[in-house]
């Protein structure tokens, strides 16, 4: 659906050229929710803006829906943008227009919808985002979450194939964030619309993204299935995002475990395995005893997962390890 090929982007700042994106290559498949995560200044928002050509690459090609759009100008460019909806961190609604007029705005700009069609589509969209009763209010009268819902309704007005989300939940409180993410996820499922979501919050990735790319210093340092990246982070930047979320300081934790006897292992379970009585079976079969040092059972998108840190004592610990690996559990030894 979207393809970046050897993208370079440099800015001229006070006569010096600053590199914003380096050697970026990426493919977003139709219908998926693709996350781009990175700290501020990593280039993720610039990358997102290459898709609707609000920014242009210094080198490399951008393909959307099979077409090379890199050199689009004039009407071609305007039509491309009409196929792509976008929502923003600060909502960017027109303060001088009512909710209804804001949602109708892109359709009026397109000029291909009649007054009646616009009216019906606005009603339909506002009902979908749960704001049917707020149509005549002005944006200043709405809460942050409501504003973002108007933003989403507006982005969907011209039935786009792609929805770009630029830090769309970063200005919202955790509860509102969750409901807005749910809405984005539902829309992705219902309409089959491809979503590209830029964020610095690992939680947003975990909730809605099928795949994710991690950016640092203008480069993609890691990418893949959300669950893989989330459960087995390789790059230090990815690591920092995953552990920042769990509020865990690894060194501190090692100290805490110093007096715990036995072998300390970290198990990662995924999918149905998450809910199987693996530990009970293990204890019966191999005679090891275990204590749970820390753990989490949750899900990434719709995949359940569990991550447990155990200490194993007594019995045949080596056999236990083999047994675990046989039952599709990823085992990482933290201390022998």
């Amino acid at each position: 659906m979207i393809e970046f090929q050897d993208i370079e982007k440099t800015y001229e700042v006070d006569g010096r050229s600053v590199s914003a994106l380096r050697e970026v290559g990426l493919r977003v498949e139709p219908g998926e929710v693709f996350g781009i995560i990175g700290h501020s200044g990593a280039g993720k928002s610039t990358l997102l803006r290459l898709i609707n050509l609000i920014e242009r690459p210094t080198a490399g090609r951008v393909r959307v829906d099979g077409r090379d759009v890199t050199d689009y100008t004039g009407w071609q460019l305007l039509n491309l943008r009409r196929e792509i909806g976008m929502i923003f961190q600060h909502f960017n609604l027109l303060s001088s227009k009512t909710v209804r007029a804001n949602v109708a705005f892109p359709m009026k700009l397109a000029g291909t919808y009649g007054a009646q069609a616009i009216r019906e589509r606005v009603e339909e969209l506002l009902a979908r985002v749960g704001l049917a009763d707020q149509a005549n209010k002005y944006p200043s009268q709405l809460s942050g979450g409501q504003k973002q819902r108007v933003g989403i309704a507006r982005a969907l007005a011209c039935k786009p194939k792609i929805l770009l989300c630029d830090e769309a939940t970063s200005a919202l409180d955790p509860q509102t964030t969750q409901s807005v993410l749910e809405l984005i996820s539902d829309i992705n499922l219902e309409l089959g619309i491809t979503v590209v979501l830029v964020t610095h919050e690992m939680d947003a990735i975990r909730r809605v993204c099928d795949r994710v790319a991690v950016m640092d210093g203008g480069e993609i340092v890691e990418s893949g299935d959300s669950a893989d990246v989330f459960l087995h982070p390789k790059h230090p930047t990815t690591h920092s995002f995953v552990f920042e979320r769990e509020h865990v300081d690894e060194d501190e934790r090692r100290e805490d475990f110093a007096h715990v006897p036995g072998r300390i292992v970290k198990l990662t379970l995924r999918g149905e395995a998450t809910y199987r009585p693996i530990l009970g079976d293990l204890a019966q079969q191999t005679g090891v005893d275990y204590s749970i040092l820390s753990g989490r059972v949750d899900h990434i998108k719709r995949t359940p997962y569990g991550q447990l840190t155990l200490s194993l004592v007594g019995g045949d610990v080596d056999q236990a390890m083999r047994e675990l690996e046989r039952s599709d559990v990823h085992v990482e030894v933290i201390r022998q």
């Binding site: 039509n79 960017n92 705005f105 892109p106």
Partner: peptide
């Protein structure tokens, strides 16, 4: 941001 959003609408 409002200008950018309007631009993004085509």
């Amino acid at each position: 941001g409002v200008i950018e959003a309007t631009q993004a609408m085509g």
